[in-house]
Design a protein around this nucleic acid. Structure first.
Length: 764
DNA sequence: GTTCTAGAAC
DNA sequence: GTTCTAGAAC
């Protein structure tokens, strides 16, 4: 504050402003945070507050953006003081900072909801006029939709504060950030679900060492006034590690105290941007003295090429220092070309500690190698060999002896390597670029025609190598392919069993087991082999009946996403871990998008039996078997929860190929039940009760289909009291409390399965 | 089947 | 302004 307005001419070139996006509910203390920092900071700060910017009227995001822009252009650092709880609300501000090539930080005031509410209820004269009783509801609603910021959104640094002490520390950090200082990049202070996932995996791997979700900002670990980023030394791994290991232990205990579910249960927690990631240093620009501008052009060009081919992967250019010239050159080009910063961004940090110190998960890292592929030298090469342990050297030797400029070699990391256990890195890709340093081998004597060509080749080889890792992650799992595929790539354990398999063994097929009963190995084998669906049609199904049926049925075209159940029915042994039961006739599995508390599928294994329309009298026994197995599972679930009620039936027109019986509890309590079609497919005549289907096939040789599209767009009615509701949320809130008995129709013929004596009012 | 998102409905 | 739906893309 005592700092005078710094105009552009007198502002030191290095003293760049910083854009800090405050994230937090009303009452979380955003304004106080800004004010506290401004009170004691030697920087010139501007607080851009949406509540006050409108001069009495409600402010807009656009006003905030323009006000922030002009302050930043004047060299002033800016706090964005609005809730910014969801990603989309933050994105334009991040772009703004990216365009101006300045650091963009998030400070997340993730304090207990109770505290935020009590503060906003109490306060009077709040700028946003949010006070009194209304505040509680608003805060609650906002918090329900909060999306914690991620580095991949484009932040350089994120500080999470979960209690007042964290807030105090963060205020200190920013208060003492002088005009010429900068703060280390990365995630700080987060103890969220990500760490739980990782801990779960590490437990499974039985690794003693549990990675930090991120280096904590708790007092002492961070010195904001330091000009050198804490994570700048490649050679102090051991010391730095032990200095934070106390924290790590504390955190381990804390997290382990919580319920750590199975890997499966985390599937829906996987964040959308947990995708295969390659971190790479700039090739040839340090020791090999390659021209930075030319290198930056090539990096951006090659990244763009890669991104066009691979949508489900991301690349991160990493360098140690904030002052890295190559990073800022590349950053400028990213902004210029408006590149997707989800898929490509820059990161300041140590490439051997991206996850443990920066919260950035990378499956693969690139090494700027020497031609002999030997450890030592210096810089990135020494650091990576050092961090990876002796295994990397031997694995590299096994793979390739030497590297000529412009080439890359993919080396899988042993699961005992600290890079694997601590950072989640499964592969190191060695790259050798062109050399413009007379002191080093293969000196090009400033021939940039050759040099550029070689550097381009080097990046092409690097990205191709990464692509081969991504591609060799086994294919498409049940239902939604991409999500699980991401999951499989995200977690070291899975890569351990799947991706690496590609490199270490070509004889996995001989291992296919036929002991359906054994479930012992399901954790790894199941999930991993389970992902290995190939969509080539199998030859071992009953070809004769297949042909007859395809002739007969009106050859419905099944999309690629509709094949998963068919694949499972044909090759259940490949999916053991995902299945509840396998017999000669049927397979039982949980619906991966359950529409109720309990929702399983009983899948027919007969080839060519795709839907109810394909069913004939010859399948009557099969239908009975499916029904019996379905009832058996319903009864099993009823022993766990007697209040459930089950209904068994088929969709008149299923979305997934391969005849399957739904066994679904009638609470319909599921976040996966999202739209009218979902509801109506289980609660109109479109849903064909199994008992009725069996009766009809028995008497007429075929089931009646109710495939009118109108059924799926019918008004929403409660399945118990038949009351109508305007939309899905209102319907769901109604059914969560509706106690009416089921309609008489459902109470007949055993259409519902419930525990003996339950529900009380369902007596026929 | 899901995801994404424009724009209708409130 | 926000919530919710519905259609397209995959």
């Amino acid at each position: 504050m005592d700092m005078m307005d710094v105009d552009e001419t007198s502002a030191p070139r290095e003293g760049k402003p910083v854009l800090v996006i405050l994230v937090g509910a009303p009452g979380s203390g955003k304004s106080t945070f800004g004010e506290d920092v401004m009170r004691s900071s030697t920087r010139h700060w501007v607080r851009v507050c949406q509540d006050t910017i409108g001069n009495g009227k409600a402010g807009t995001k656009a006003q905030c953006l323009s006000s922030a822009t002009s302050a930043l252009k004047e060299g002033k650092s800016v706090f964005i003081d609005r809730c910014n709880l969801v990603r989309e609300q933050r994105s334009e501000f991040i772009q703004l900072g990216g365009g101006l090539q300045i650091d963009v930080h998030a400070v997340v005031l993730d304090l207990p909801a109770k505290l935020c509410i009590s503060r906003s209820v109490k306060r009077t004269g709040h700028e946003g006029n949010l006070q009194g009783g209304r505040a509680a509801a608003v805060v609650n609603r906002m918090l329900q939709h909060k999306e914690l910021p991620k580095l991949s959104e484009g932040f350089n640094r994120i500080t999470f504060c979960q209690n007042e002490n964290d807030v105090k520390n963060a205020i200190n950090t920013y208060s003492s950030l002088g005009p010429l200082d900068s703060l280390p990049h990365g995630c700080f202070g987060q103890k969220n679900t990500d760490s739980k996932i990782q801990v779960g995996i590490m437990k499974f791997l039985k690794k003693a060492e549990v990675p930090l979700a991120a280096a904590s900002t708790t007092s002492g670990t961070e010195d904001p006034t330091s000009q050198t980023p804490r994570n700048n030394s490649y050679f102090k791994n051991k010391e730095t590690l032990s200095s934070i290991s106390d924290n790590a232990n504390l955190e381990t205990k804390e997290v382990e105290g919580q319920e750590v579910g199975s890997a499966d249960s985390h599937a829906n927690q996987v964040c959308p941007d947990d995708i295969p990631t390659l971190a790479f240093p700039s090739i040839s620009t340090s020791d090999f003295q390659f021209n930075l501008e030319k290198a930056a052009d090539i990096i951006v060009e090659k990244v763009a090429e890669f991104s066009n081919k691979f949508r489900n992967a991301r690349l991160v250019l990493v360098d140690l220092s904030h002052k890295s010239k190559i990073l800022s050159l590349v950053k400028a080009r990213i902004a210029e070309k408006n590149m997707d910063t989800q898929k490509f961004f820059t990161h300041v940090g140590d490439i051997t500690h991206l996850y443990s110190r920066g919260g950035l998960r990378c499956n693969a890292i690139a090494n700027a190698a020497n031609w002999r592929l030997k450890p030592g030298g210096g810089g990135v090469n020494a650091a990576i060999f050092n961090a990876a342990g002796p295994e990397l050297e031997s694995a590299t030797k096994d793979k390739v002896k030497s590297l000529s400029p412009g080439n890359a070699a993919v080396v899988p990391l042993s699961s005992s390597s600290p890079l694997f256990t601590r950072e989640g890195v499964t592969h190191v890709i060695h790259v050798l670029g062109p050399n413009m340093n007379p002191q080093r081998p293969n000196y090009l004597n400033n021939d940039y025609n050759k040099g550029c060509k070689i550097l381009e080749d080097a990046y092409t080889s690097l990205f191709d190598g990464f692509a081969s890792i991504v591609r060799n992650q086994p294919g498409i799992p049940v239902g939604k392919s991409e999500k699980v595929e991401r999951k499989s790539l995200e977690l070291p354990v899975q890569s351990d069993c799947s991706a690496r398999k590609y490199f270490t063994s070509t004889e996995q097929k001989s291992k296919r087991s036929d002991d359906h009963g054994s479930e012992k190995s399901k954790k790894c084998k199941g999930t991993l082999d389970g992902l290995g669906l190939a969509f080539t049609d199998s030859k071992d199904e009953k070809v004769d009946s297949e042909q007859r049926r395809t002739e007969r049925s009106r050859s419905k075209a099944w999309g690629s996403w509709a094949q998963a159940l068919h694949q499972i029915a044909m090759h259940p042994e490949k999916h053991k871990g995902d299945l509840l039961e396998i017999s000669d006739d049927v397979v039982v599995l949980n619906d991966i998008y359950p529409k109720a508390q309990k929702h399983v599928l009983v899948l027919a294994r007969t080839g060519g039996l795709d839907c109810l329309a394909d069913v004939q009298k010859e399948q009557l026994q099969l239908l009975k078997k499916m029904h019996d197995v379905g009832v058996k599972w319903a009864e099993k679930f009823l022993t766990e929860n007697a209040s459930l009620v089950f209904r068994l039936g088929y969709h008149s027109v299923p979305s997934m190929r391969q005849l399957h019986l739904h066994v679904i509890s009638q609470d319909f309590e599921s976040t996966q039940l999202k739209n009218k079609k979902h509801w109506n497919s289980f609660n109109t005549a479109f849903f064909r009760d199994s008992v009725d289907v069996m009766d009809e096939v028995s008497s007429d040789g075929k089931a009646t289909l109710k495939d009118d599209d109108k059924l799926l767009s019918m008004e929403l009615r409660c399945h118990r009291c038949r009351s109508a509701h305007p939309n899905i949320p209102r319907l769901k809130s109604h059914i969560s409390s509706c106690q009416s008995p089921f309609p008489a129709y459902l109470l007949q013929n055993g259409r519902l399965v419930h525990a003996p004596g339950e529900p009380r009012n369902s007596v026929q």
